Simulated assay, not measured.
Amino acid sequence: MSSTPQDPTDTALADAPLEAGSGGRTPTPGKPRGSVWWRHALALLALAFALFPIVFIVSSAFNNAGTLSTSSLLPSNIGVENFNDLFSDSARPYWTWFRNSLIICGVATVATLFLGASAAYAFSRLRWTGRRGGLLFILLVQMFPALLAFVALFITFANVGNVLPAIGLNTLAGLLLVYLGGAMGSNIWLLKGYFDTVPRELDEAAKIDGSSHARIFFTITLRLVTPILATVAILAFVGLWGEFLLASIFLTSADNQTLAVGLYATRQADQNRYFGQFVAGALIASIPVVLVYLALQKQLVGGLTQGSVK
């Protein structure tokens, strides 16, 4: 039986690879398959928009004119006179504000990690009456704006200060107590979601060896949840470093103010005259936040993603 000869043109068309998404048609020679220039332009525009405030602050900080009216994107008279004026101003103790902010943020961050991790471990690993209701109550409380509690907090700590002056108004300890109470809700949920990803078989094996809940928590669990601890530490430190509303209500004297409150008072004193000192102080104030991010950035993404999908 003889076979019909095959056309060479049909063989060539059959062997030619099909272009994905082209419906079987080969692309026209010389025609770009997809131009992405607008994506690069949009990215450059977003980058310029994000970097403009930073460049302006850095330029104003090193501009010896030191006023808002003479500030520009590129300084004409570069120097460090703004920093000298900031450090030598006895009416505005910048380094005292810096120390207060470091104390409050450092102590509050460590305490937030310990209290949040302890509560999250109890909600994740232990079984007790009211566990589910407690989690829902914490979530419900987070729905209300924090501004609703400011008046109640002010009256409460004003009365507490009459009995215990060390934790009343205009004290760093009183402000720390307020910060610790307000940071528990979201941190507990975030930490619990990550704690649930740790296998319970590790706890059961440790219990067989005679370990208590405290030993399991400190020697096993905390070592396995380092990414989420770093994430919570970043969020807590950055959030408290720039907090202004509560600090401005609780701290009234210049020696007890934080950086946010002190720099705001500097700008309000004379917006044009003290603008150079303001931007110089703001530039130095950004250094701790940048260092914290650089030190813990590897843990940030992993902690947020793994703790939110359980």
Results as ranks from 00 to 15, higher is better:
G116R: 07
A117M: 11
S118F: 10
A119F: 15
A119R: 09
A120I: 07
A120W: 06
A120G: 05
Y121Q: 05
A122P: 00
A122V: 15
R125G: 05
L126I: 12
L126E: 09
L126V: 11
W128F: 15
G130E: 00
G130L: 01
R131K: 15
R131Q: 13
R132H: 14
G134D: 09
G134I: 12
L135Q: 08
L136E: 14
F137Y: 15
F137R: 08
I138T: 07
I138V: 10
I138C: 00
L139V: 12
V141T: 12
M143A: 06
M143L: 12
M143G: 00
M143W: 06
F144D: 01
F144C: 05
A146S: 14
A146H: 11
L147Y: 11
A149M: 13
A149C: 12
A149Y: 14
V151W: 11
V151S: 14
A152M: 10
A152P: 08
L153C: 00
L153P: 01
L153Y: 10
L153D: 03
T156G: 01
T156N: 08
T156P: 06
T156I: 08
F157K: 10
F157S: 06
A158D: 14
A158G: 14
N159G: 02
N159H: 09
V160G: 04
V160N: 01
G161V: 12
N162F: 07
V163N: 10
V163F: 14
L164G: 01
A166K: 12
G168S: 08
L169W: 01
L169Y: 05
N170R: 05
N170A: 05
N170E: 03
A173C: 04
G174F: 03
G174N: 08
G174C: 09
G174T: 07
L175E: 07
L176I: 12
L177M: 13
V178G: 09
V178L: 13
L180R: 09
L180D: 07
G181C: 07
G182T: 03
G182A: 05
A183P: 00
A183F: 00
A183Q: 09
M184T: 00
G185N: 05
S186H: 03
N187M: 09
N187F: 03
I188E: 02
I188L: 15
W189N: 00
W189K: 02
W189I: 10
L190F: 13
L190P: 01
L190I: 06
L191E: 06
L191K: 05
K192D: 09
K192Y: 00
Y194T: 00
Y194G: 02
F195R: 03
D196M: 01
D196I: 03
T197P: 06
T197S: 14
V198D: 07
V198C: 06
V198I: 15
E201V: 02
L202G: 01
L202S: 00
D203Q: 11
E204T: 13
A205T: 07
A206L: 04
D209F: 03
G210P: 03
G210T: 02
S211L: 11
S211W: 11
S211A: 15
S212F: 11
S212V: 12
H213D: 15
H213S: 15
A214I: 12
A214N: 09
A214W: 13
R215Q: 15
R215F: 03
R215G: 06
I216K: 04
F218M: 08
F218E: 00
T221D: 02
L222S: 08
L222G: 04
L224K: 02
L224D: 01
